Deep mutational scan, measured.
Amino acid sequence: WIARINAAVRAYGLNYSTFINGLKKAGIELDRKILADMAVRDPQAFEQVVNKVKEALQV
């Protein structure tokens, strides 16, 4: 799951650890299995999560 998430978030200019930190700051409580599945099956929803994380990180 970690490898999938890392590959997906790198397309948005983040790395895995920064993304996970941003999830916590944004108050998003999705587990890694769901995030990895979302990255593959629903990229639009995953992009929305990434955008919320970037807002929380102020990137």
Rank of each mutant, 00 (worst) to 15 (best):
D31R: 14
L14A: 01
R10T: 14
G13H: 05
K25D: 06
L35S: 01
A36G: 06
Q58G: 10
E29G: 13
N15P: 04
A7Y: 07
E55V: 13
L14E: 01
K52R: 14
G27N: 14
K25T: 10
P43I: 09
I2V: 07
N21I: 13
S17V: 08
A11D: 07
I34G: 10
D31Q: 11
Q58P: 10
K25P: 05
G13M: 03
A26E: 04
V50G: 01
V40P: 02
L30A: 09
A11M: 13
I20E: 06
V49F: 05
K33H: 07
Y12T: 02
V9T: 03
Q44K: 14
R4Y: 05
V50T: 04
A36F: 13
I28V: 08
K24W: 08
R41L: 14
K52M: 11
F46S: 00
N51K: 08
A39C: 04
Q48K: 13
I34M: 14
N6Q: 09
L30G: 07
N15H: 08
I5Y: 02
E29M: 14
K24H: 09
M38Y: 07
F19Q: 00
K54F: 11
A8H: 04
I20P: 00
A3E: 12
L35W: 04
I5L: 13
V53Q: 00
L30W: 07
Q44Y: 09
L35V: 05
V53K: 00
A7H: 10
Q44V: 10
V49E: 02
R32I: 15
V40N: 09
I2L: 06
Y16L: 05
A45C: 05
A11W: 04
F46N: 00
M38A: 03
A11S: 07
Y12V: 03
K25C: 05
K54D: 01
W1E: 15
L30S: 07
R32H: 14
Y12E: 02
D37I: 07
I34D: 08
A26W: 03
L23P: 00
K33A: 09
V50E: 01
A36I: 09
A56G: 07
K25R: 11
M38S: 03
P43E: 06
D37T: 12
V59C: 09
A36C: 05
Q58W: 07
G13Q: 05
A11P: 15
M38V: 05
E29P: 14
A56W: 07
A45H: 08
A7F: 06
D37G: 08
I28R: 03
D31P: 09
